Every structure is written in structure tokens, then in C-alpha cells.
Computed example of a mutant assay.
Amino acid sequence: MQTRGRRLKLTAVLALTVLTLTGFSTGRHHSSSRHGHGSGGGGGGCSSSSQDHDTSTSSGGSSGGSSYTHRPNYRSTPTATSSATARPLKDGTAVLKRCASVADPYTTVEVRNPNGREALFTVKVAYKDRTGFTMADASSQVSVPANGKATLRMAAASTGALDRLDHCEVDRLATALS
């Protein structure tokens, strides 16, 4: 009968040790500031010769062994990675839709944004006469939605020269600013 009782006690101690080491709680809660050696009372990590294995209850005093408090809700703090940083914007495209004239002194340009976020683009237009001479240059900025397009109406650089204006040339590259 004594052998059976000792086996049960040994089994109970081993089960409690396994449960404690794997982080399961026996119903006793310890402050997270009580890590290490000392008055953990009842918890059990490593065995010590000063521990009393002959009783099934703890005296609540210093056992001389180590205690371990498992924190199942502990998560590490995430850190910023290079993938979280914004990628540089790609330049857009600009297409001339209508050149300025005496009747309507505005040039219309369609700008496309190839980026996955809204961006600001600079558009450049050259106003030329019949010989190809650039009478004036103009630039303007337009905000374009992500993967979208926007129409920009630019005032002619010099309305006095509109009677000599033959054509407009738009720089097909719309420079991304932000």
C-alpha cells in the first residue's frame, strides 16, 4: 500500500512539474515581478533537495527552488521594416488633348498616374509658331488619384502671341513630385 501511495505522490509531483514548465496554471497566480529564486511558494520549475515532495500541498514558504511565471499574452513589439517605407513614385504620362487658341486660350492635357497612391505631377508645355520656334514655355501642377487620370487646363503663357501660335508640344513625361 505504501508503494502505491508513493507512486501516486510521485505521479502528482511529476504532473505538476510538467504543467508548471509548460505554462499551465494550477490556480495560483504570481506577480510577474517575482521571477527567479525566492519566495515563489508553490510554483515549481527545477527540483531542489530542499523541496518537500512528501506532501501534496505547499507550505507557501520559500522552497529554495526556482519559479517560472508564464505570460501567455506577451507579444513582442513590432518594429518598422523597410517594406513599410513608401516607395518612390513613378513619373506619369501627359497627353495633349487640345492646344490653346485665340478663341480658347487654354491648353488641355490629360495626365495619368501609374502609382498605387495619389500623386502630384508637373506638366510642361511648349508653345510654338509655324517655324518650330518656341515662343513660350509653361508648366503647371496637377494632383492625380491612384492609378487614375486627371485633366489639366493650362492658361496659355502669352495671350498676345496666340495669333502666331501654330501648335503646342507637351512633354510626355509628367514628373512626380509627391
Results as ranks from 00 to 15, higher is better:
G64C: 05
A100C: 08
G43T: 02
C46K: 02
L89P: 02
C168T: 03
H30N: 06
T107E: 03
R172Q: 11
L16W: 08
A174K: 03
S82N: 08
D137E: 10
H30A: 11
S31I: 00
A84Y: 10
L89E: 00
S33Y: 11
P78I: 11
A150P: 02
R71V: 07
R87T: 07
A150L: 02
K128G: 03
C168D: 02
K97G: 04
R4C: 03
H35K: 12
G45P: 01
S143Q: 09
T108Y: 05
G23K: 04
D52N: 15
T77Y: 09
V18Q: 07
R34K: 10
Y127S: 11
P88E: 04
S50V: 15
V18W: 13
A80W: 05
T77R: 12
D52M: 14
S83R: 13
G60K: 05
A15M: 09
G42C: 05
H35E: 12
R7H: 07
D163C: 01
L165Y: 04
A138E: 05
V111G: 05
A100W: 01
S32G: 02
V18E: 07
V123L: 13
K97R: 08
G40F: 06
S66D: 12
M1Q: 12
V18K: 07
G27L: 13
T159Q: 10
T93S: 10
V123Q: 09
V102T: 15
D129H: 04
A80E: 06
V109M: 00
H53I: 12
S39T: 15
G36A: 07
L8K: 12
V111R: 01
T77G: 00
D137K: 06
R172P: 07
L10N: 13
H70P: 03
G41V: 12
R87H: 04
S76K: 06
G45H: 04
Y68A: 04
R7Y: 03
T26W: 13
R98M: 04
V13P: 04
P145E: 06
S66R: 07
S31Q: 09
P78K: 13
Y106C: 05
S31G: 09
F24H: 13
R34A: 08
K128F: 05
A80D: 03
Q51W: 14
M154Y: 02
R112E: 13
Q141V: 08
E169N: 08
A100V: 07
C46R: 04
D171N: 15
A12K: 03
R117K: 15
G61S: 11
T69G: 10
S66E: 12
S139Q: 13
G36W: 01
G116D: 15
S49T: 14
R75A: 15
K124E: 06
R6D: 11
R112A: 14
S49Q: 14
A161K: 14
A94M: 03
G116L: 09
T17Y: 08
K90A: 10
S83P: 00
M1G: 15
D104R: 09
A156E: 01
T26N: 15
R7W: 05
A126I: 00
Q2E: 11
P114R: 05
G64W: 05
S50Y: 13
T17E: 06
Y106G: 00
P88Q: 06
V170F: 04
F133D: 12
R172Y: 07
G5T: 01
